[in-house]
């Protein structure tokens, strides 16, 4: 390879939770690559392994009860072998994260300015006065009105959208290279959602950071992402540029997801096209393609072996044996 290695490189990541009576295979071989300034949306339903993937990148999953295999490299650092000190420096500085519910992810007993300054002082050293100046600068960048007053506010004194802006400011405090966003708009009003999405998009261009965005809302993915990775049963079943995924999905699950959305031309009484069945039991995965039991196109081969990714377009891959059958459906 002559090109520079990607900023984030995840290879064959497997995460197993061993705490319970039966090991739960939350992630079963995820490959992801992300370049500087790129935005990737990970799309999937609950339990598909989206959040676990993000957490694994920061090693936030409980160490004792989690087995992580494969490799995660961010900016040349092998995340899985970092020592405790290196890990602390890595978190927040190389990769930082924004959470779903800003009301819970901000400490209620400290002012926002204090929380941001605390993180900056912890990472960069320096004085509290400088850290506060930087916090003010961040508040301006995330477009919080009257930022100086707002720095002295407690989280409960702000609205949901404002809190999420503050959360983003906190995540950007130490100039991370990668920003992980775990459903950052799910807890917000629809009108505020779009503002936050635009803000993330804008900041991403301004700071040149890479963003991995986890969501179950295709509409959100369309707003922010360059590329989409669709997850199902702990695997990425289809990945590609957002346009290609929307126009010509090639994995039956993606097709099902897109069909099951409410679209504008719906009339009263029409039923949504739901995917039959329920998501796989991660403690008891079927041997072949994990979507096979719910798949209309499933062939005998599907339940025997796990399909490898098949290239179906430029940068567009689907993990399916029946991509030949899905092409006409999408067209």
């Amino acid at each position: 390879m002559l090109t520079t290695p990607p900023l984030v490189d995840i290879r064959n990541l497997k995460v197993t939770f061993t705490g319970g009576p039966k090991p739960i295979c939350a992630i079963n071989g995820v490959d992801l690559a992300l370049d500087r300034g790129e935005t990737l949306a990970i799309l999937g339903e609950s339990g598909s392994g989206k959040s676990v993937t993000l957490r694994a990148m920061l090693r936030l999953n409980p160490e004792k009860r989690t087995k992580v295999e494969g490799s995660i490299t961010v900016g040349g650092k092998d995340v899985l072998t970092l020592g405790p000190k290196e890990l602390q420096a890595f978190r927040g500085r190389d990769v930082s994260m924004i959470f779903q519910e800003p009301a819970l992810a901000l400490d209620p007993v400290y002012t926002l300015g204090h929380q941001i300054a605390e993180t900056i002082v912890k990472h960069d050293g320096g004085s509290w006065a400088d850290a506060r100046k930087r916090a003010l600068d961040l508040f301006e960048r995330v477009r919080i009105p009257s930022p100086e007053r707002r720095l002295d506010n407690y989280p409960h004194e702000m609205s949901g959208g404002m809190r999420q802006r503050a959360m983003i400011a906190l995540a950007l405090a130490c100039n991370p290279k990668v920003l992980l966003a775990d459903e950052p708009t799910t807890a917000l009003d629809a009108t505020v959602q779009i503002q936050i999405l635009l803000l993330i998009r804008e900041l991403q261009r301004e700071f040149g950071i890479a963003v991995i965005f986890v969501t179950h809302d295709i509409g959100v993915a369309v707003e922010v992402a360059d590329r989409v990775a669709v997850m199902y049963g702990g695997r990425i079943v289809e990945t590609g540029p957002i346009r290609d995924i929307l126009r010509s999905p090639r994995h039956p699950y993606t097709i099902g997801l897109l069909k099951s959305r409410a679209h504008d031309a719906m009339t009263k009484g029409t039923r949504l096209d739901a995917i039959p069945g329920s998501p796989p039991d991660l403690a008891n995965l079927p041997p072949g393609c994990s979507f096979a039991p719910r798949c209309k196109l499933a062939a005998p081969a599907c339940s025997e072996a796990t399909p490898e990714p098949v290239a179906v377009g430029a940068g567009h891959e689907a993990r399916c044996f029946r991509t030949d059958a899905t092409a006409p459906v999408a067209a």
Binding site: R91, R93, S96, F99, L104, L106, M167, L170
Partner: peptide, 16 residues
Amino acid sequence: RDYVEAARASGANALT
């Protein structure tokens, strides 16, 4: 609570 996880995610050690 989420804010403890958020603190861990931003690189705080157990003592902090």
